[in-house]
Design a protein around this nucleic acid. Structure first.
Lengths: 310, 310
DNA sequence: GAAATTGATGCTCATGGCGCATCAATAGCG
DNA sequence: CGCTATTGATGCGCCATGAGCATCAATTTC
């Protein structure tokens, strides 16, 4: 039969021996005096005899207690230095590598990285600013600990934890006729030249798939490689653009405004990570902080889109 | 901040590592599989990272887990051998020394020693068969772990835990006139020759003190050193005797009978132990068993006669 | 002798740990 | 490739445990 002590039992004994008082020891361990008294009694039960000789005014070790002291010191020293060393190894010098679509990177990461750095200042970050498909590949190949992406929900090799629903919106100049409307229909966009990203872009694929379901065809006049270039052309007055909300200017912009489009088309942004492979401690910790920070801000019901391969 | 692990956490981890299976490890530790799974999760939380990489069919240590293994082995080995060594010291080769008045020794001890020996067969007993005053001195001087005595209740140097109230009764031959009565008064004893023990005897002192309060004088014809000799003289027909109930034959005796005497005079038999000095583990254990065995058989309400020195 | 302080204990309540039921995932086999 | 058996994880309910509060008896100091 093994003896199932708790570290707190040993710490209680050590604290009493060093403080010479149950009350002082209780304070040192953030316990009440009765709680500490019971811890000592529990240890005495485990060991099989009294460890302390005490009156209401005096505490001293018994012979058995004196015999136990070096063992308790050794056990706690080894446990503390060993476990702290391991916990430190989980953090110190560690690097978290993330594959993020750019819009997500700038929106999600700064505040969370700031919080994280308060707790584990030595962890470094490597942020792969990639397209959605490239980011997904990086996660699948193990080149990134995890990614923030809007693709992956139907990929069996990765898990997908949604963070939020990001709607596609119209971006146009303030003096554009459509700017006068509080919201626009997809049909309202027909008369105007549209600026879009390339057809291999994840956003483009997503949008066109959604619009096909709504029986809507878009007239693309300008095709660019990056979403930020889209906004440049809109600002120059060459057309309007349909962009994810997070890709548009946050807050007031002197020239560009955004308008919601109905019927509403959204993309789900979430955390993608390779299945069956635990994250390194620092990455795991960061992931938890990310979810903790943004889960409260989910704009729609959190949707579990993680489904097994057929 | 310290890490408050439990020995069971460490044992769970070790068991899984050795068994290669949560279920097998759970069996080894007499836990259910879910309980063991949670123990592992708890340890991973304490350490700050995953210790095991597992699917439903395969369990392997992570790098962090491999790093933790030697520390866990060392901690548990040290704790187990150290604590078992101490627990053994509490039991093995131990000797319990008791100072008992003879009547108590034969009445109280046999059954309890039998029970005790079932649990700790290697503990030896030394029973000092002493008079009450000698027994009290032996306890006070530390020559005995504790004593069973009817003196000591008002002695500040010892604690007194009552076990039972033992009344003084009349012992006479079956053919004696007093044997015809169901009970006798102290006055009924006046016409007869009394056999008693020496005036330095604790029983004698106790009895005379009690009778003085009842305004009763005794006519002692025979004075002997031991209570057992009293019974011999009664049996020989030389007189009657007043003895503690426990000193008289238990059960049927062909020649001697006992009769209760009114008003009732009793002595309180209890455990006396030196104050402020914890008992050695085996003695403490025996004392607990003694109380446990006999506390249920207290003939009168348990009386707390232990009072502080003025 | 009174007062202050301490360790132990009774009591209550919230929490934690366990086992059961169940699910999803995995591996083996046909 | 589909089916089956088994496993680790999780939700849930229940019960035991551990904590703090109130209080007591004992000790020490003044």
């Amino acid at each position: 039969m093994s003896i199932n002590f708790e570290a707190l039992d040993l710490r209680a004994f050590l604290a009493v021996a060093e403080a010479g008082s149950f009350r002082a020891a209780a304070d040192a361990l953030a316990l009440s005096q009765p709680a500490l008294s019971r811890r000592i009694q529990r240890l005495e039960g485990l060991v099989g005899g009294p460890l302390l000789e005490r009156t209401t005014r005096r505490v001293a070790l018994t012979a058995l207690g004196r015999e136990l002291m070096p063992l308790v010191r050794r056990l706690l020293d080894e446990a503390d230095s060993g476990l702290f060393g391991l916990r430190g190894a989980a953090g110190r010098g560690a690097r978290v590598t993330l594959a993020c679509v750019p819009t997500a990177a700038f929106y999600f990461l700064p505040a969370v990285i700031a919080r994280f750095t308060e707790q584990l200042p030595e962890v470094r970050f490597r942020i792969l600013d990639l397209s959605a498909t490239e980011g997904l590949d990086a996660v699948s190949r193990g080149e990134a600990d995890f990614g923030i992406n809007f693709l992956g929900a139907s990929d069996a090799a990765v898990s997908f934890d949604p963070l939020l629903e990001d709607p596609f919106v119209l971006a146009c100049r303030r003096d554009h006729p459509l700017a006068a409307q509080a919201r626009v229909d997809w049909a309202d966009l027909q008369p105007y030249r549209l600026v879009t990203v390339g057809r291999e872009s994840g956003n483009r694929i997503l949008l066109e798939t959604a619009l096909a379901r709504e029986n809507v065809r878009m007239r693309w006049f300008y095709e660019v490689t990056h979403l930020s270039t889209s906004l440049g052309l809109v600002e120059a007055g060459l057309g309007v653009s349909v962009l994810p909300r997070l890709a548009t200017p946050q807050g007031e912009h002197p020239i560009i405004v955004t308008r919601p489009i109905t019927p509403r088309v959204t993309r789900t942004i979430g955390i993608v990570a390779r299945r069956g492979r635990p994250l390194a401690p620092a990455a795991q910790r960061f992931r938890e902080l990310l979810i903790e920070t943004w889960a409260d801000k989910v704009l729609a019901d959190k949707v579990s889109v993680d489904r097994p391969r057929p």
